[in-house]
Design a protein around this nucleic acid. Structure first.
Lengths: 338, 338
DNA sequence: TTGTAGGCGTTATCAT
DNA sequence: ATGATAACGCCTACAA
């Protein structure tokens, strides 16, 4: 690998000083058109590209965003993937690249992030997040954003989260307006914040429409196909006319149970799902010939906004700490008016 | 955000020169135990961390690996996810972080990679890879590894790929040894290299055991559940006693078709799948109560090895250009001896 | 064993 | 409009 040329060499070739070249490269300051042409020619001839490391050192800014995904066994949950793509897009649109921090046993993330000068800001993601990491960066005033709602004692962290409460409330109200009163909810969990918020939204909708909350219609901790299947089998004993299901895997299991019982969607039961796994969701719908109404989490947008928030923050703009992004309701043919 | 201390400040605090501090930090050169203790104390008190940008500039080495994923609309195919995790693990084990290059309309990847000095080496991944990018880095001698087998005219690129030929051959032979002669293959595609290799492996196995290749047992381009379902419906007309299926989605569709026809696995037909999507695969097997024999692509390992290859390369070690990684055959109860 | 000088490639500052 | 010079924080090479 042969060396790449630097500013000085370009300057010599163009017969100007390095600063003039720098100005041309960065489009900053005043440069006469004539010299600019000379410089541009030299740049082209030498195939010059600025050395970003040197630039970063001088500017004290790398234009790189850090990304930390806390995950078990180093595996990113499939759910986060699309968000990460969004982060990348958002970052890219503003001229930033993305550095994925690898797990290191020797050093905590937060130290490496704040001290290494390699990233200008950081995005945290994941369920098993280390609260100390956030606390550290927060206290140091290092720009960060957490994806997902999170409460940490003592501080109000910057975060952006899907508004599960509002989203589920909206879906529930939709069903209520179609005349449903016995609405099941599969998958709420008191331990997982998003799931718990879904329950809250569900309850809010019932309350608003003077319907009584019936715990027998609510099933906890449904994550897998099998969970969804079992939950639905139980739920059907309660003769619901509609059901909202937590996640894609559960939905697959649950609709299978519905089929097995000889019931049809939406004639015998209305169904609304969450499309946390969009690809699978679409595949499955195609296959079953189902046109499921779903609550969509705009994951790309979520990631993109996380990136933009972080950049706003690191550029010194005011950013509010708690941010929510609306869920979308995709109306389809799996719900029937009673 | 307050400034972080630098070598000089630590040096002053410890009453030594910056070089001594540097030596302690890097564990290089000779430093007396007494001074070392002083320095370590100062480092701790000031909470010093080396500035990696400055270090990179001086060393002309960042300890960062670049990762370029070529994908449609910025979406990483689910398949690549796990590989990326593997890359991260491999990199991390050798002290490298990962920089994801974002798509930029202004600049080609290869220019940014080779000129920006931000990464020491790069890993390419994806179907829609830009051949020019590889060509460029290759010609410049910039360390790179491509994940997946790829032929590019004029050059022999460095790559690491699953050995689909060998893997499929192994599975096919397993079925032949169980007494099967009418073995279906769902999902080969002449256009997609891995799929085509599966066909080659299948044919090699037949040839080796003096069985005649019957194109009627082979179905092309099966990617989705629906594809798999339709292919299997057709295939069953040929009365196969066993079938090998291309990917997880196809397998789900195909086994559904088998069920619908009132056939049982493995009593009426033996089935082997590929678990390209391991999570879904497991979920599905659980749900169906199926214990599918599968050909496993060791994706974590693939990614890890890609990282290690790249690092070997950039450290100046000899690395062979074409590398294959064995697939694993996971024997389970979905195949029967005839 | 420890320290000094110079350089890595860029940008900021201050002159001209 | 252009240029000289000093940072940025660290490392290499050489000197003491």
């Amino acid at each position: 690998m042969n060396r790449t040329p630097n500013l000085l060499e370009v300057a010599k070739a163009a017969g100007v000083s390095n600063m003039t070249v720098s100005r041309v490269v960065n489009n900053s300051g005043k440069v006469s058109d004539k010299t600019r042409q000379k410089v541009l020619k030299a740049i082209k001839e030498l195939n010059y590209q600025p050395n970003l490391i040197a630039r970063s050192l001088a500017r004290k800014k790398t234009n790189i965003l850090g990304l930390v995904v806390y995950s078990e066994k180093g595996v990113h949950p499939a759910f986060y993937n699309e968000i990460i793509n969004g982060v990348q897009q958002g970052a890219s649109e503003l001229g930033y690249d993305l550095l994925i921090f690898a797990n290191s046993e020797k050093q905590s993330y937060s130290d490496r992030i704040t001290h290494s000068s390699f990233v200008d800001g950081v995005i945290f993601m994941g369920v098993k997040i280390n609260q100390n990491d956030i606390k550290n960066v927060h206290e140091k005033g290092f720009p960060y954003v957490f994806v997902g709602k999170r409460e940490i004692e003592g501080i109000n962290p910057y975060f952006i989260s899907p508004d599960y409460i509002k989203g589920t409330k909206m879906a529930t109200e939709y069903l209520i307006e179609l005349g449903h009163t016995r609405i099941g909810l599969i998958g709420q969990s008191r331990m997982i914040e998003p799931d718990y918020d879904k329950l809250l939204g569900y309850q809010e909708a019932l309350y608003k429409h003077n319907l009584v909350y019936n715990p027998q219609l609510v099933f906890e901790e449904s994550q897998t196909q099998l969970d969804g299947y079992n939950a639905m089998k139980e739920l059907l004993k309660q003769k619901p006319t509609a059901v909202i299901i937590n996640n894609t895997y559960s939905t697959i299991g649950a609709t299978t149970a519905i089929k097995e019982e000889g019931l049809r969607i939406p004639d015998d039961i209305s169904v609304i799902g969450f499309d946390d796994n969009q690809e699978l969701n679409e595949q499955f719908n195609d296959f079953i010939g189902l046109e499921l109404s779903t609550i969509r989490i705009p994951k790309i947008d979520l990631g993109r906004q996380a990136a933009k928030m972080t950049i706003s923050l690191l550029e010194g703009n005011d950013v509010s700490q708690a941010n929510f992004i609306d869920l979308q309701f995709i109306k389809n043919s799996s719900c029937k008016k009673l």
